[in-house]
């Protein structure tokens, strides 16, 4: 099979074409989705390594306290995260409602997992969604969005700097939204045990509902690693 040289191919191409479009593929496998898929791949790897942990989520290797922040809940009342979720199993996530892909997928996978738990266990888990886009995410907007998943999920909004500091205290990167740009937020979910009110496990973007369903009963029991 003869192989055209790049030069002759290009020369011929230019000569033959009215307009020349060049495109470079990402890799030999050619799947342009693979760059974002790297995230999910990393989860699988980490899960595989954490064989000493009962959880399928990622062991943090340290623990995080809950953010010491008071924000505004969806009824417009002040909400002290640490105080008002004390003694509960808590999943904490920072996101925004105009996020088309990752945020609804993450909250949806959590909602599906919780819906499959026995009723008593469902009541033992609090899901706390803190907006990273407080200018658009009013208490009413948050309530309406969260109700599509689970009317028991807690939605919090407030001053962006308070939210950034709260996120930073638990290792989640959040930036103040800039005009014309998509909000930037770390997409990980932190899981807090009801026994010590600390996070020992996190879930990265792409974690399946099956993983949450596996881990939530452990979290509710207060297993810390």
């Amino acid at each position: 099979m003869s192989h055209l040289s790049r030069r002759s191919l290009l020369t011929g191409a230019v000569a033959a074409s009215a307009g020349l479009l060049l495109a470079a593929c990402g890799s030999s496998s050619g799947s342009s989705g693979s760059s974002s898929g790297g995230n999910a791949g990393a989860v699988t790897q980490l899960n595989g390594q954490g064989s000493s942990s009962a959880y399928q989520g990622v062991s943090l290797g340290r623990s995080f306290d809950k953010p010491s922040a008071t924000l505004t809940d969806t009824s417009g009342k002040p909400f002290d995260i640490a105080k008002q979720t004390a003694g509960k199993a808590v999943l904490l996530y920072f996101g925004y409602t105009h996020c088309p892909d990752v945020c609804p997928t993450t909250i949806g996978d959590i909602a599906v997992a919780i819906s499959k738990l026995p009723k008593a266990q469902q009541k033992s888990v609090e899901v706390v969604f803190v907006t990273t886009d407080p200018a658009r995410d009013t208490p009413a907007t948050l309530r309406s969005w969260l109700n599509s998943f689970n009317s028991g999920f807690i939605g919090l909004t407030g001053d962006i700097n308070t939210i950034i500091a709260a996120a930073k205290s638990v290792g989640v990167a959040v930036e103040a939204p800039a005009k014309g740009q998509e909000p930037v937020h770390g997409a990980q979910v932190l899981a807090y045990a009801p026994t010590d009110d600390k996070a020992h496990i996190l879930y990265t973007s792409g974690t399946t509902s099956a993983t949450y369903l596996h881990d939530l009963p452990l979290l509710i029991k207060g297993v810390t690693a």
Partner: peptide
């Protein structure tokens, strides 16, 4: 990892496939 970007195309390799999928 932390946001979203607009892209100008999605490559589909010869004898291959590409998924547009969650995340």
């Amino acid at each position: 990892e932390t946001s979203m970007e607009q892209i100008d195309g999605v490559d589909v390799p010869a004898h291959g496939s590409t998924q547009l999928a969650r995340g």
